[in-house]
Amino acid sequence: MSMAMASNPHLLKSFETALEVLRQSFKRMGTMTAENCSLATSAYLASDEPRALEAITRDLDIDTAFEELRADCFDVLLKFQPVAKDLRLVMGIEHAVGNLERAGDHAKTIARHGIAKPARKMAPAEAGQIADMAALVARTLELSVTALVDNSTEAAKQVLVTDERIDAYRDAVFDAAMVALGQGRAQAQASVGRLFVATALERIGDHATNIAEEVLFVSRGIPPGATRTGSDFG
Rank of each mutant, 00 (worst) to 15 (best):
R51E: 01
T57Y: 03
V21S: 02
V76C: 00
L45H: 01
K79R: 15
R51L: 05
V97S: 03
S42M: 10
A55C: 09
R70H: 11
F74V: 15
T33A: 11
M29C: 01
P124S: 07
A123C: 07
A40V: 00
M29I: 10
M133R: 00
M91D: 07
E20H: 07
A125S: 15
D72S: 13
D48C: 03
K85T: 13
K117S: 13
E101W: 09
V90M: 06
M133N: 00
A123E: 14
L77M: 14
R70V: 14
A84P: 02
M32R: 02
D105M: 01
E54N: 03
R88K: 11
E67Y: 10
P82H: 04
E126K: 00
T64Q: 14
A134M: 03
S47I: 00
K27H: 12
R120L: 15
L100V: 09
P82Y: 04
T109D: 14
T57I: 02
S38Q: 15
G92N: 04
A107N: 02
R23F: 06
C73G: 07
G114D: 02
V21G: 03
A103D: 07
F74K: 07
A131D: 08
D105N: 01
R51K: 10
K117M: 09
D59Q: 07
A52E: 00
H113E: 07
F80P: 02
P50A: 11
K121L: 12
K27I: 13
S47Q: 13
A125V: 15
T31G: 15
M91A: 12
A65Q: 06
T31F: 14
A125R: 12
I130C: 06
I115Q: 02
D48F: 01
V83N: 01
D72N: 04
I62P: 07
Q81V: 14
H95R: 15
A52Y: 00
G92C: 06
M32Q: 14
F66D: 05
R58K: 13
T109C: 04
H113L: 08
A116F: 04
P82N: 07
K121F: 09
Y44F: 15
D75Q: 08
A52I: 05
K79F: 12
S25I: 08
A127F: 09
V21R: 00
F26H: 05
R58F: 06
L100C: 05
I62Y: 05
A65L: 06
T64G: 07
D63H: 08
C73K: 02
I93D: 05
M133K: 09
E126Q: 13
R51H: 05
T41H: 03
A18R: 00
P124M: 06
I110H: 03
P124C: 08
H106Q: 14
L87Y: 13
I56C: 00
S42T: 10
Q24T: 13
E35C: 12
A131L: 11
